[in-house]
Design a protein around this nucleic acid. Structure first.
Lengths: 198, 198
DNA sequence: GTCTATAGAGCGATAGAC
DNA sequence: GTCTATCGCTCTATAGAC
C-alpha cells in the first residue's frame, strides 16, 4: 500500500458512492436528519465537497439514499428481533427493536416518510418503509383483525417515543434502573397490546 | 397611529424582550428547536438581527427562555385537560393533551431537557419542566404506587411518540379515520395504563 | 436600546481544470 | 471521476454609531 489512504491530497477512489453511503449512515446517526451535511460526509470520506454531487442529485437525494440504506437495516433489525410465534410477543419485540435502532441510528418512520424525502422519490426508501411497516402490521392483524391499523399506530407511536426520548438523553439522564431501553420499550408495548386487545 | 409598525426603517419598541419571546414561540413551533434562528425571530419582529443580543446572552439562552415560556403553556394545557377524578382517566387525558400541544408547538420533554439548554441554566425552564412532569407523576402514583416512575415513562413515551409522528405528518398522511390526534393518543394511553396496571 | 455594518463560519451547489 | 475554486446564502455574534 504505497501512500496512506484518507490523505488530504490528490487521489481517487474505488467505490465512492458506496463509501459515501457508509459515511452518510454515520453522519445521520450522529447529527440526525436536520443536521445532515453533505460537506461533512465528504470530509469524512476524504474527498472534496463537490464529489458527492457527481453521484447524487442534491442534498435530499443523497439523504434519501442514505435513509433507504438505514431503513433496510432497520427492517432487518426488527425482523431479527420479532421472531416469536405469539403475535403479541412478536409485536412487542418489534417495538423494542425499533426503539433501540431508531435511538441509535436516528432513522425511523419520521425520516422514512419525511415530506422532504418523498420528493426524492427513492424507490428503495419507499420499499424499505413498507417492509418495516409490515413487520408491525402482520402481528397486529393476527391480534386485532380489523383494529390492526389502530393497534399498529399505537405501538409504533410508543416505540418511536422511546426512541426519540432516548436519543435526546431524556431516558438515560436520571436513570434509576439499569434495565436496557429495548426491554423497557418491549414491556411497555406488551402492556399496551394487552390493554388494547383485552 | 402615525406610521405603520413593523416597518423596515428606523423605530424603536415598547417591550422588545416580550415581543421577541412571542415571535420566538412562533418560530419554535414552525422551525422546531434545530431550525430555531435568532435572526429569523428578529426579522419577524421587525428589528435588526443584533437587537436580541441586548436582551439574551446567546442563541441557546434565548431559546431556553422561549422554551420556558412554551413549557409553561404546555403545563397549563395539560393541567386544563387532566381534570378527571379517576387517576387513569386523568393520566390518559394528560397524554392526549401533551401529544397535541407538542405536535403543534414543538416543545416537549425533548426540548425542555435538551442538554444544550441545560447549559443555559434557565430556572423558569427547569421549573416548568418539573410542573409538566408532576402532572403525569401524580396520577401515576395513585395508579401504580412504587411503579409510578415506570408507568410515567411509558405514558410519556407514548404521548411523545404521537406528538413527533404527528408533527412529521406521519399520522395525518394516509389517514383513514378522522378521529383527532388528541383522542387517539388518549385512547392509546388508556389502553397502556390498563394493560400495565391490570 | 436600537441601529448599521461587519467578521467569520458553514453549507449547498456549480464551473472548469485535470 | 475527482479536484480546486468560487458564488451565494444564512447564521451567530461583536463593534461602534446614534
Amino acid at each position: 500500500m504505497p501512500g496512506g489512504p484518507r490523505q488530504r491530497g490528490r487521489y481517487h477512489h474505488g467505490d465512492l458512492p458506496s463509501a459515501l453511503l457508509d459515511a452518510g449512515l454515520e453522519q445521520l446517526a450522529t447529527a440526525g436528519p436536520a443536521g445532515f451535511s453533505v460537506a461533512e460526509v465528504a470530509r469524512r470520506v476524504g474527498v472534496s465537497t463537490a464529489a458527492p454531487y457527481r453521484h447524487f442529485t442534491d442534498r435530499d437525494g443523497f439523504l434519501a439514499a442514505v435513509a433507504a440504506r438505514a431503513a433496510e437495516r432497520l427492517a432487518a433489525a426488527v425482523a431479527a428481533a420479532a421472531t416469536d410465534d405469539d403475535p403479541r410477543d412478536r409485536l412487542a419485540a418489534a417495538a423494542g427493536a425499533y426503539a433501540v435502532f431508531v435511538a441509535e441510528h436516528r432513522t425511523g418512520f419520521d425520516v422514512v416518510y419525511a415530506p422532504a424525502l418523498r420528493a426524492a422519490r427513492d424507490a428503495d426508501l419507499a420499499a424499505a418503509g413498507r417492509a418495516v411497516m409490515a413487520l408491525f402490521l402482520d402481528p397486529a392483524r393476527e391480534i386485532a383483525g380489523d383494529g390492526a391499523l389502530e393497534l399498529t399506530e399505537q405501538v409504533v407511536a410508543l416505540a418511536h417515543g422511546y426512541a426519540t426520548l432516548d436519543a435526546e438523553g431524556f431516558l438515560t439522564a436520571d436513570r434509576v434502573t439499569d434495565v436496557p431501553t429495548a426491554t423497557r420499550a418491549r414491556r411497555a408495548a406488551r402492556a399496551l397490546i394487552d390493554g388494547a386487545a383485552g
